[in-house]
Design a protein around this nucleic acid. Sequence first.
DNA 1: TTTTGAGTTGTTCGA
DNA 2: GTCGAACAACTCAAA
Length: 485
Amino acid sequence: MNASPVLVWFRLDLRLEDNPALSAAAERRSPVIPLFIWAPEEEAPWPPGAASRWWLHQSLKSLQRSLVSRGSRLILRSGATLDTLKALIAETGAQAVFWNRRYEPAVVARDAAVKKSLIEQGIEAQSFNAGLLFEPWTIRGKSTQRPFQVFSAFWKACLNQPEPAAPFAVPKPLTIPALWPDSLTLGNLHLEPRIDWASGLRTAWEPGECGSGIELERFLKKGLNEYPSERNRPDRTGTSRLSPHLHFGEIGPRKVWHALRGSSRIDKAEAVDSYLRELGWREFAYHLLFHFPQITNEPLRSKFSAFPWQVDGRLLNVWQRGVTGYPLVDAGMRELWATGWMHNRVRMVAASFLTKHLRINWEEGAYWFWDTLVDADLANNTLGWQWAAGCGADAAPYFRIFNPVRQSERFDPKGDYIRHWIPELRRLNLPWLHKPWEGPVSILEESKIQLGKTYPFPVVNHEKARQEALASFEQMRLARSAARA
DNA sequence: TTTTGAGTTGTTCGA
DNA sequence: GTCGAACAACTCAAA
């Protein structure tokens, strides 16, 4: 037996299938020591939020279970990563550390320092790609050789690349070390909330590799064919719901890619392309985050630094709690609070509402989503918010301001989504459900609604807010041309 | 270097 | 109800 063990350092790749770091370690026929290190402060200013920590706990539990069922274990530690790795190397005599790459700026810097230090110490340190179809540095403009800032050109370049490799199989039984190092218990990491607010999350999700496989199967069977149209319907299950699973790496994009391309159950190539395109947006988000790492806290378009954002804690709070008086926005914010997830169509409406109607800085929204989403992902969250605010890559033109009532009428036509998340409006008929403040007094009375008491009046008037948002853009434009002159 | 065509997800207005 | 145009100006990416 090959004596010295390999440490497999798990991060956002909490799976056994298609896990190149784990497979590479298994092929060594050396003992394998699976390891997770909890070091949130190393990810500042974006350490995992509360919903993410809840998910992480469940996902680690699931990974631990699968490893144990294979006769292995998952060693848990907390504290500074490099010190922890060095301590484990000393304890176990490991000569190699393998992991799968991450792309968040703070993590990239941390990992580079870890790798350098390990190599200096004579330890083999290898990183792999488990999380992306296309590594950010491999995609460049044809003539410019620069990173892309426009999605369609980016995705076209990706599709011209060789097809992503087939996923790795689950490795054969792992070689067990002669002696297991000490491990914390999962409870020691204190990932779960002290006050149990997670019952809605438990109902909505099954974290872990097994749960992701079930979700993918469901989507292939029931969702994908109608994806191009149904994906916009928050009142139906028309999306894949894979986002948290992809974020934690319980399933990898290669598996999803090949499952879709190879599935015989799908009769519409259009549906496959349409969903893969969304995976493409995920790739694009990572591409941007890698090449423009400052965008997590600065607008990609620097002229937006001059945008006259409003600072208003009351309005921010109203938005966060889902009491803006616009039913679709409120339904979305309450879905988020209850389940840790919000339908993408509603995310756009809610984000547009915060940044345009309330003119609150997109960063406030990004931090709220970061804390409350189970799929909080720095690349996707940053791209999404900057896109909505108009300051990001390929962003919506400034005059594209979502009308929360019109969006509601188009995408929740029967009001089922609103009724589900705003029970106090459930007796209200169409079309007033989309805009209660326009409902006749008699109808509101019959529906047991007292505006201002049981459900709020709109916090802003749509048309007025729209005009003010347009005026703010104009102000920014003028400030810039003045600065240029 | 310069030129040219194009750019996720919308709304409103008027015919 | 449906349809097309206007809503600006700017930046990116390729030729």
